[in-house]
Amino acid sequence: MKRKVIPFKIPKSNKEFVRFQVDAAKYFYDKLHQHPEWQLTLIKKGKGHLMVGDYLGRFEPGDMFLFSANMPHVFRSDPEFFDLTSDKFSLGFSLYFDFQVLGKSLLEVEEFSGLLQWKQHTKGCFRVVGETKSKILDSLNDIGEKEGLKRILLALQILNYLQKREDMLLLNKLIPYKDYSETEGKRMGRVMSYILSESRQNISLQEVADIGNLSKEAFCRFFKERTGKTFTEFLTQVRIHQSCQLLQDSDLSVSQIAFQCGFQNLSYFNRAFKKVQGETPKEYRSKLL
């Protein structure tokens, strides 16, 4: 029986190869989801965590990401963006490519052979950098105003830029071999939302297992299979990324940041930080300064 993906539909017609979408709101769509369209996203405003497969990292203004088809992902904005009294705002530009619309016959045209080969061998989430990013930035500013053949030609030009592999940094090492079922997707979405929103508190394994409606043993297997990490490893990584942001944006001391991010022990925070970042919190802050 065919498995259902996490329910998320790109608002478009059934015969649209490329869609340009502007996401403007307090915070980005915060549910773990996947869709058959390829997605290219530029972060214009907003900060937070990007979670895709076994990758957990920060996103900030100016970042550009490419997701191949059916890659479960979520842009989780930082807590302050959910505060309705704040002036924080998020803005993103996205292109969605629906290769299924082109049909098998068109993709088999000789001129499309390079694109087809790239599509077949490219899987995962990538950070787009360098010259490729610069060229795409110019195209993104124009594509929203293009229609018909002009939009398709510009979209194909962007896809051609993305084939420059040295400017495509693969972020996730764990590539899902199957789609999430709808139940799995909803469960993982609830768990991730809870961890990312409550990470500064003392979260127990039993709490997140209850959120997933699983026993602790079943939850540990479920979580490790889908993230490549144990719950403790993932939670620690979330807290370290949050501490990096505070080390960069605040004048709080290292010990204050450690406790604010959920670490109960300063020496453990220092060890965990060095393990994840390859340097101590003080070295990280000094480098920024």
Score class of each variant (00 low, 15 high):
His49Thr: 02
Asn202Ser: 15
Leu40Asp: 02
Asp210Tyr: 10
Gly57Gln: 06
Ser13Asn: 03
Gly228Gln: 07
Leu205Glu: 14
Arg200Trp: 03
Val52Ser: 09
Asn160His: 12
Tyr55Asp: 04
His33Trp: 07
Val128Asp: 04
Leu289Phe: 13
Ser90Glu: 03
Leu153Asn: 11
Gly57His: 05
Phe67Asn: 05
Phe259Asp: 04
Ile10Ala: 09
Lys119Asn: 10
Lys274Tyr: 08
Ile257Val: 10
Thr236Gly: 00
Leu171Lys: 03
Arg226Leu: 08
Lys119Val: 05
Leu171Thr: 01
Val238Asn: 01
Ser193Leu: 15
Lys104Ala: 10
Gln39Gly: 09
Phe82Asn: 06
Val74Arg: 05
Glu60Ile: 10
Arg165Ile: 10
Leu154Ala: 04
Leu56Gly: 08
Leu247Asn: 02
Asn172Tyr: 12
Arg76Asn: 07
Val101Met: 07
Gly262Phe: 02
Phe234Met: 09
Ser253Ile: 07
Thr236Lys: 06
Trp38Ser: 03
Asn265Tyr: 00
Asp23Asn: 11
Ser267Gln: 14
Asn202Met: 11
Leu84Ala: 13
Glu16Gly: 10
Gly57Thr: 06
Thr183Ile: 15
Phe20Gly: 09
Lys9Trp: 11
Thr132Glu: 07
Glu283Leu: 09
Gln260His: 12
Ile257Glu: 00
Lys44Thr: 05
Leu40Val: 04
Gly148Arg: 15
Gly189Phe: 00
Asp87His: 09
Glu225Asn: 00
Ile136Ser: 02
Asn270Trp: 08
Leu214Ile: 01
Asn270Val: 12
Glu80Ala: 09
Thr85Lys: 15
Asn141Asp: 15
Ile257Arg: 00
Ser68Met: 02
Phe223Gly: 01
Glu131Leu: 07
Leu169Ala: 12
Cys220Leu: 12
Gln206Asn: 13
Gln237Glu: 15
Asn202Ala: 14
Glu16Lys: 07
Leu196Phe: 08
Gly278Thr: 02
Gln248Phe: 11
Tyr161Lys: 03
Ser199Glu: 01
Lys15Leu: 12
Gln245Pro: 04
Asp142Arg: 15
Asn160Tyr: 15
Asp167Ala: 11
Gln256Ala: 12
Arg239Thr: 00
Phe17Gly: 01
Leu289Thr: 12
Met51Val: 11
Arg76Phe: 11
Gly114Thr: 10
Phe89Tyr: 14
Asn70Cys: 11
Leu102Phe: 10
Lys274Gly: 00
Asp142Asn: 15
Gly278Leu: 08
Thr230Lys: 06
Arg190His: 12
Gln163His: 06
Lys4Tyr: 13
Asn270Glu: 15
Leu140Val: 01
Arg19Cys: 03
Phe234Gly: 02
Ser77Leu: 00
Thr236Met: 01
Arg221His: 10
Glu198Lys: 15
Phe99Asp: 00
Leu115Pro: 00
Leu40Met: 10
Arg151Asp: 03
Gln117Ala: 08
Val191Asp: 05
Ser113Asn: 09
Ile257Ala: 02
Lys135Arg: 13
Thr236Gln: 02
Glu207Arg: 11
Phe81Leu: 04
Lys9Ser: 14
Glu217Val: 14
